[in-house]
Computed example of a mutant assay.
Amino acid sequence: MTDTISHHIPDAVMAAYVAGNLPKAFSLVVATHVSMCDDCRANLHAHEAAGGAVLDSMAEAPLSGDLRAQIMGRLDDAIDLDREEDETPVRDGIYPGPVMAALKGKKPKWKRLGGGVRQCIVDMDREGSARLLHIPAGKPVPEHTHGGLELTLVLQGGFSDATGHFDVGDVEVANDDLEHVPVADEGVDCICLAATDAPLRFSAFVPRILQPLFAI
């Protein structure tokens, strides 16, 4: 699939992901894209290797006597052999493993947003939200800009806006500088995984009124 992917995870976002500093919603998009893209998977491993090299070069810090005693004391603790393995589910149709994990292995529960567009919120906390968007073929998403960062990963179909065309596996990075009207490609409905850390800013009156109801 890498051969068809032309829009990747920015290096700064990848570095934050590896460092564990990326909000959960954005981490889901990165993990999903990495599962689809050989190039970004290689970039991820490069960042991890660089981080390991930094740790190896750091001077060792002595453990306090109390901490050392606590660690040594835990060595004899019983191990729970019946604990389930934390395995990421495999792809189910158009949904890669990380998305299936966020959905807990269940099918998306779609809610209508209007104009044929539907959404399914898969993760939400104080730092942001991640949702699946289902956009009918040939239909637009209402014009909007952003209160912060938005990462949108195409899982099926594709869409175009003022910045270009995005196909399966591509990631669009949008911030408050971008005002756009994404339009789904003809032929196949577009399904995306989108993460935001702030509400969208819609230009039209009706979407602005309905926005709080849909948590977008």
Results as ranks from 00 to 15, higher is better:
residue 130 A to R: 07
residue 143 E to D: 07
residue 90 V to I: 14
residue 84 E to L: 02
residue 71 I to K: 05
residue 61 A to H: 14
residue 154 V to M: 09
residue 22 L to Y: 12
residue 100 M to P: 09
residue 205 F to K: 04
residue 84 E to M: 00
residue 3 D to G: 06
residue 206 V to M: 05
residue 192 C to W: 03
residue 143 E to C: 06
residue 184 A to E: 01
residue 107 K to S: 02
residue 70 Q to L: 04
residue 87 E to H: 05
residue 186 E to C: 03
residue 173 V to A: 15
residue 176 D to W: 09
residue 130 A to S: 10
residue 216 I to V: 12
residue 27 S to A: 13
residue 76 D to C: 01
residue 74 R to D: 03
residue 207 P to N: 10
residue 103 L to I: 03
residue 94 I to W: 03
residue 194 A to T: 00
residue 189 D to V: 05
residue 135 I to E: 01
residue 11 D to R: 03
residue 166 F to L: 10
residue 54 V to G: 08
residue 210 L to G: 13
residue 56 D to F: 11
residue 146 H to G: 11
residue 19 A to L: 07
residue 184 A to G: 01
residue 90 V to G: 15
residue 170 D to Y: 15
residue 144 H to L: 15
residue 21 N to F: 04
residue 33 H to T: 00
residue 40 C to W: 08
residue 205 F to V: 08
residue 78 A to D: 04
residue 78 A to Y: 04
residue 104 K to D: 05
residue 105 G to T: 09
residue 89 P to S: 14
residue 201 R to I: 11
residue 21 N to M: 06
residue 196 T to G: 12
residue 184 A to R: 01
residue 184 A to D: 02
residue 161 D to I: 06
residue 209 I to M: 00
residue 165 H to Y: 10
residue 146 H to I: 09
residue 89 P to A: 15
residue 17 Y to A: 04
residue 123 D to N: 15
residue 101 A to L: 13
residue 131 R to P: 02
residue 76 D to H: 02
residue 141 V to Y: 01
residue 136 P to E: 01
residue 206 V to H: 02
residue 201 R to D: 09
residue 153 L to P: 11
residue 49 A to S: 09
residue 60 E to G: 13
residue 152 T to L: 08
residue 6 S to H: 15
residue 93 G to P: 02
residue 19 A to N: 07
residue 148 G to T: 12
residue 8 H to C: 07
residue 194 A to L: 00
residue 44 L to E: 05
residue 142 P to C: 13
residue 55 L to G: 00
residue 100 M to Y: 05
residue 76 D to S: 01
residue 53 A to M: 15
residue 25 A to W: 06
residue 77 D to T: 14
residue 175 N to Y: 06
residue 192 C to G: 03
residue 183 V to T: 15
residue 158 G to A: 10
residue 167 D to Y: 10
residue 27 S to I: 12
residue 111 K to P: 12
residue 174 A to L: 14
residue 187 G to S: 05
residue 184 A to T: 01
residue 61 A to Q: 13
residue 104 K to I: 02
residue 151 L to M: 13
residue 97 G to T: 07
residue 100 M to W: 09
residue 126 R to V: 12
residue 49 A to K: 10
residue 56 D to I: 07
residue 132 L to I: 12
residue 120 C to P: 00
residue 74 R to L: 03
residue 189 D to Y: 06
residue 94 I to L: 07
residue 182 P to M: 09
residue 171 V to P: 02
residue 73 G to A: 10
residue 173 V to T: 12
residue 15 A to E: 13
residue 123 D to R: 15
residue 113 L to V: 14
residue 99 V to D: 01
residue 49 A to E: 10
residue 47 H to L: 13
residue 50 A to T: 06
residue 24 K to M: 07
residue 152 T to A: 07
residue 169 G to H: 00
residue 152 T to N: 08
residue 170 D to H: 14
residue 28 L to W: 05
residue 176 D to P: 06
residue 93 G to E: 03
residue 53 A to V: 12
residue 6 S to M: 14
residue 5 I to P: 11
residue 82 D to Q: 11
residue 92 D to G: 12
residue 104 K to R: 04
residue 164 G to L: 14
residue 63 L to C: 07
residue 190 C to F: 13
residue 132 L to Y: 11
residue 56 D to M: 11
residue 65 G to I: 15
residue 149 L to T: 09
residue 50 A to E: 06
residue 211 Q to S: 13
